[in-house]
């Protein structure tokens, strides 16, 4: 895993959070009638506020995780869990955001599928990807998991316009172009996901990886996080 210039991470993150907070401040203002002082509860505006709050939260989680990893402070806590529970947990926590944005998410996963992974890190990937997807999709998201060739494939699909051409394919942390300032938040987000994938690696084995494609049968993009089979890292 290549190390990153943390100054760039900070610059991208601050820029993004500043934008989000600006949008949030505007939305808050729109909730109150400037003349009468009366509050109107506009669904659209609330959805916007929620979206921006999620974005800032994701940015902070991302920054902290990148920092801890860079400092060698992060040892993944690899533990077996039921993958469908991971997906349901995330679905339930993000449901308010999706409801307000008029998005419905479905889960497609074998109920008995168990996998060893770092729950916190993988949830951060889902948060990162879904917050973005909610913004661009037309109303449908699918969270799914399957085992292919001995790897767990966690996927987020949508019915939106799909990813831009240059982003498609396999993304790794070697891919420093993602960290150019021009690539902005999206590039940093992908770097973050690739880093988490690569933290799921057996010694001398295939590392976890991240792949973007536009072949979802929902019509839009497909984000795939591939995780190899790992032994749990802690005592039971």
């Amino acid at each position: 895993m290549k190390s990153i210039d943390f100054g760039t991470v900070i610059a991208i993150s601050i820029h993004d959070m500043k934008n989000s907070l600006g949008m949030a401040m505007n939305s808050l203002e729109a909730l109150r009638d400037p003349e009468t002082g009366e509050c109107n509860c506009d669904e659209q505006t609330i959805a916007r506020l929620q979206y921006e709050a999620h974005r800032v939260h994701d940015s902070l989680v991302q920054m902290l995780t990148l920092y801890r990893n860079q400092q060698g402070l992060y040892t993944p806590r690899l533990r077996p869990l039921l993958v469908i529970e991971l997906l349901e947990d995330y679905w339930a926590s993000s449901k308010p955001l999706m409801d307000h944005s008029g998005v419905t998410a479905e889960i497609d996963c074998d109920e008995d599928l168990e996998w060893v992974l770092d729950r916190e890190l993988v949830t951060a990937v889902l948060e990162n990807v879904v917050t973005n997807t909610v913004r661009y999709c037309h109303g449908r998201i699918r969270l799914s998991a399957v085992v292919r060739d001995g790897e767990l494939w966690l996927q987020v699909e949508d019915d939106g316009p799909g990813f831009p051409e240059p982003m498609l394919g396999s993304r790794t942390t070697e891919d420093q172009a993602m960290l150019e300032r021009g690539a902005g938040r999206t590039g940093l987000g992908l770097y973050f996901c690739a880093m988490i994938a690569e933290l799921h690696t057996v010694q001398d084995g295939t590392p976890g990886s991240v792949r973007l494609s536009n072949d979802s049968d929902l019509g839009g993009g497909r984000f795939t996080l591939r995780l190899p089979a790992l032994p749990p890292s802690e005592t039971l």
Partner: peptide
């Protein structure tokens, strides 16, 4: 609690 460590665990966590 470690998922899957037991002969018969709960239905869900």
């Amino acid at each position: 609690m470690v998922m899957g460590a037991l002969e018969s665990g709960p239905d869900a966590y």
